[in-house]
Design a protein around this nucleic acid. Structure first.
Lengths: 245, 245
DNA sequence: GTAATAGTGTCTCTTAGACAGTATACC
DNA sequence: GGTATACTGTCTAAGAGACACTATTAC
């Protein structure tokens, strides 16, 4: 650093301007009973007390955005064991009045986990809910439970809608579907996940061919157990197809 | 608003926590001489004085993110007449030390304009440069001018790299290429834009078929002028294919 | 054997690449 | 007519949908 550069830095006053608050909101998705679902937390405080919101938290001054999202995954979503979860940044929401308290800009992240990984968290914290999602005509999401649609806080229906559309857009060409399945899975389970996200049935032989030709799958030689008919072979996701030769 | 909700709001103190500064950075791209290019501004001040940066600015407290990006487009990129520019949010960059002055989180936007729209701005402000871009092995961008690579400030080579990749990923299925062309254009010009962004030659008859079958193009019946050979027909982008019947 | 699902072979249709051919402007 | 490019017809190859068929398990 040059001398003039150092002089400039000491003269810079970061408190000179008002600044918005920065939060991270997490769309933690899975596939439950043939439909996309996301983890929501019941809000006990104002604003939007009694409605449901995405797990979120403010970004600390010494914390990168991705680290804040990981922290929210552990602390707010009670997914301490979710080290291997797939996570990516989704979009940043910055409408002026999206939070009535003060200006809050939210960087939304979206994470994927297999359905079975939610049981412990849901049992431990009754303020959590894993709600089925569907898109309305405007592209926002509606969160359904047994008794009807859950009211959503802030602009979170918009965030959830974007998350569903991101998932739909990526599933055809990226390996994210594997983040929604356990380590070993059948081709039928993989197809079920695709169908749930796309919301449309797929052709079985074509789907098999496509998946096997991609080189992402590794046959384990093992078969599923507990079925009352012919058991299917179990596959494993192979992240890095060997590029030898 | 209920009484308890109002009481909560007055009790909430937005100044209780330190907050990062929020900036918007703009990747204003075009296609020049068969290669992607972006508008850069020379930095006169520390940090990174003498290097080149994306046009950017801090987000005001009463300003939505998209509005801040539009303002930067007009004020910093000197594109006052760019009301019709295509623009979308790209990604939010929040590494703790990406700006040595203080914590700055940057929401990057990416905008597209036809090459011809830059002449006035470049002439009016000698601190602007429209630099050719290419990707390096890490996926970051290198900005080339006649005399070699321009040094880039902050993490802007990373932002530019992501912009190129976003453009590549979208051009096959979205109509963004038309934002890089004047209102009337030939199919050859459209193909040139695609080839510049993808960095690979395309098959002419297949490209024609694909474009015409999509229903995005409207023949004007007019032909280009000034060529010393058979003039090509001029087309117009038709944003909304009529969905009648 | 029956039932139910796993897994495969094959036909067809659509789409893209390749390539050669025709068309039309200026000189 | 020559030349350079616009535009088109057609062959071929790859991939997806459809559908029927075989395979394998539990009962």
């Amino acid at each position: 650093m040059t001398e003039s550069e150092a002089a400039f830095l000491t003269g810079y006053d970061p408190a000179a301007y008002d600044r918005p608050s920065i939060a991270v909101d997490l769309v933690l998705m899975s596939v439950i009973d043939g439909a996309p679902a996301a983890l929501l937390v019941r809000r006990d405080e104002h604003p939007f007390a009694g409605t449901w919101a995405l797990p979120g938290g403010f970004v600390r001054m010494d914390e990168a955005l991705d680290d804040a999202a990981r922290r929210v995954l552990e602390e707010k979503a009670h997914m301490a064991q979710a080290a291997g979860a797939y996570m990516e940044q989704l979009y940043t929401f910055g409408a002026v009045s999206r939070d009535p308290r003060t200006r809050v800009i939210a960087i939304a992240y979206f994470a994927l986990l297999p359905a079975g990984r939610f049981a412990a968290a849901l049992k431990a914290d009754p303020g959590l809910s894993l709600a089925r999602l569907r898109l309305d005509a405007q592209g926002s999401a509606v969160a359904d439970c047994e008794d009807g649609a859950l009211p959503l806080a802030f602009d979170h229906s918009e965030i959830l809608g974007l998350a569903i559309r991101r998932l739909r857009g990526k599933i055809d060409w990226s390996p994210i579907a594997f983040a929604l399945l356990p380590e070993r899975f059948t081709l039928r389970a993989l197809q079920d996940v695709h169908e749930a996200i796309l919301g449309t049935p797929l052709n079985k032989p074509a789907f098999r061919r496509r998946m096997l030709d991609r080189g992402w799958l590794e046959a384990t030689g093992e078969r599923e157990t507990g079925s009352s008919f012919r058991p299917a072979e179990l596959f494993r996701f192979r992240p890095f197809p060997t590029v030898t030769g």
